[in-house]
């Protein structure tokens, strides 16, 4: 058990080191979602967005939940990228010839992606706070938001890692990534509530796990516990099913790729 932990912590530290050496990349990963979506998009649509539709005091406070979950989505879907590079340059093969437990590599990646995502979510909530968004459910609500983000992120990261092991080249990987990310955002309640969408988009968005996550985070920020609790309960159920499916599917890929 202590050996297992030694492996996982050494591998996780490697991801942290890599990130800290890529200062620019780190800055952009951290800044991009809040800059593009929260600050620009949020303020840009301030007057266009109809308060009757969003049911929020202003568009930024409506959008915050969406940006939080978008960050989880993007981090999760990109979570396999480093493994993809490891696979391509032979580093993964080197790791696989060491007597480590095969799951250590995967677990270290989960831990790393979840930690970074949680930090980013906190930064987003902080920036939103500067624009006057105060989470209605307080610190406990923030903890609940982080939990929802992690539940969603686990499944996404699993998909991403499975994809990293399956694709032929990293070009393919990034094409699929680009193809998944934006439609997932548009076909969710991130930017517009379901009630404000064209009927067919609203219909599709209901099948998007992202919608469920956002609809639980949003009342945690805007309304309060009484409104949020049923949604939070529901999202836990949805995410457990989502994660189970993702983990089951990707476990098969991992086993084939790593022996």
């Amino acid at each position: 058990m202590s050996e297992y932990w030694q492996e996982i912590s050494a591998l996780t530290m490697r991801w942290v080191r890599r990130l800290s050496r890529e200062k620019f990349s780190m800055l952009f990963t951290l800044v991009q979602p809040m800059l593009f979506w929260l600050i620009f998009f949020g303020n840009l649509f301030q007057r266009v967005a109809d308060g009757q539709v969003t049911q929020a005091p202003d568009y930024i406070s409506f959008l915050t939940a969406g940006v939080v979950i978008m960050t989880v989505l993007n981090n999760g879907l990109a979570g396999g990228v480093d493994l993809l590079f490891d696979k391509e340059n032979g580093f993964l093969e080197r790791l696989m010839t060491t007597p480590i437990h095969r799951t250590s590599v995967i677990l270290s990646r989960f831990i790393f992606v979840m930690t970074i995502t949680s930090l980013q979510v906190l930064v987003i909530l902080g920036v939103a706070f500067l624009f006057g968004v105060q989470p209605a459910t307080g610190l406990l609500g923030i903890a609940a938001i982080l939990m929802i983000g992690m539940l969603f992120g686990v499944g996404l990261t699993a998909i991403s890692m499975a994809m990293a092991f399956s694709v032929k080249s990293h070009g393919d990987f990034f094409s699929v990534l680009g193809f998944l990310s934006l439609p997932a955002i548009f076909l969710s309640s991130a930017l517009v509530p379901l009630s404000g969408m064209p009927a067919w988009m609203g219909f599709l968005a209901r099948f998007n796990p992202m919608t469920w996550a956002i609809d639980a985070v949003r009342p945690l920020i805007l309304s309060g516990w009484t409104e949020a609790l049923p949604h939070v309960g529901m999202v836990v159920v949805v995410m457990v099913i989502f994660d189970a499916l993702c983990l089951y599917g990707s476990a098969k890929v991992f086993r084939r790729a790593m022996g």
Partner: peptide, 20 residues
């Protein structure tokens, strides 16, 4: 099979941990 962001020593330290 080199991680360009790690130093030479860090490569060996990582493997040291993986070989327990």
């Amino acid at each position: 099979a080199i991680d360009r962001f790690l130093t030479g020593r860090e490569h060996l330290e990582l493997l040291g941990a993986l070989y327990h």
